[in-house]
Amino acid sequence: MNQRRINKQNNFYYMTGALVVLLLSASLAKSLMGGMLESLLEGVIAITFLVCVISLGVDKSWKRFMQVLIVIWLLTAISKRFVTIPHLDLFMLGLMFAFFWGTFSSIAKQVLFSGAVSGNQVVGSIALFLLLGLMWALVYLLILALSPNAFSGIEHSAWGQNFSQMAYFSFVTLTTLGYGDISPNTPFAQVAVYMEAIAGVFYMAIVVASLVSAGLAQKSTQQEG
């Protein structure tokens, strides 16, 4: 029973699973009508937040910060059902970005150049990649909200309606595939896009270097022992 609980040996499996479910839910929710789509997506995001906090419970430095962000985000999501406040969606996107950034920073400290390589750490590097793509998707949603003509191939609407498409565009850019069905029009959007492409290339190099160096150090330790 204890082996099924989230701990340092399996926490990234749960977190990566939650992030994959979030991405799948966002794409499947596109078939629902507006209000239902937004409610479903916000519910899945809230669950993802909780899984991330529980998974990172071993990192006390970020736990309280992310708990506060979750409470504020939930209060904001509930408030928008009853009152109309200008730029509330922008505030929610900003909170989501801050949460994912905190999660990314916490995982990076536990995965990159952290000693022995385990399956959990390899899965953690996948979680880092997913978080990187999600954070840039939020940046694109913020840009689109502030400048409706910033991207071609996507219509300006509520962030929940465009979340799946921007996540798709973000990961296509992060992996430098560049299909071209969605493209940036404004200089600021173009800068954000090529910066993500650069980050994607450097991330792969950093992760490979980290895992190789950690693996060599682990092998050397075993031989000396």
Rank of each mutant, 00 (worst) to 15 (best):
M1Q: 01
Q3S: 05
R5M: 08
N7C: 07
K8A: 14
N11T: 05
F12Q: 14
F12Y: 15
Y13A: 12
Y13V: 09
Y13W: 13
T16I: 08
T16H: 11
A18C: 06
A18T: 07
V21I: 14
S25Q: 04
A26Q: 10
L28M: 11
K30F: 04
G34S: 10
E38G: 11
L41C: 06
V44Y: 05
A46P: 04
T48A: 06
T48F: 05
I54W: 00
I54C: 00
S55Y: 02
G57W: 02
D59N: 12
R64K: 08
F65E: 08
M66F: 02
Q67T: 01
V68P: 01
L75K: 00
L75F: 05
T76H: 07
T76A: 12
T76F: 03
V83T: 09
I85D: 03
P86N: 11
P86D: 09
L90V: 06
L90A: 12
M92H: 12
M92F: 02
L95N: 11
A98I: 14
F99H: 09
F100A: 11
G102A: 10
T103W: 04
S105T: 13
S106V: 09
I107G: 03
A108S: 14
K109L: 09
G115K: 12
A116T: 10
A116C: 05
V117N: 06
Q121G: 05
V123C: 05
G124P: 10
S125N: 02
S125V: 06
A127D: 03
L132Y: 02
G133L: 03
G133D: 02
G133Q: 06
M135E: 07
W136K: 01
L144H: 07
L146W: 01
P148C: 05
P148A: 04
N149R: 04
I154G: 09
I154M: 07
S157E: 13
S157P: 01
Q161E: 15
Q161F: 07
S164E: 13
M166T: 03
Y168W: 09
F171V: 06
N185G: 00
P187D: 07
P187K: 01
F188Q: 01
F188V: 06
V191E: 01
Y194S: 02
E196H: 12
A197Q: 06
V201W: 09
F202L: 15
M204L: 14
V207N: 11
V208H: 11
A209Q: 13
A209L: 11
L211F: 15
V212F: 13
K219Y: 14
S220N: 15
T221P: 00
E224Y: 14
E224I: 08
G225A: 15
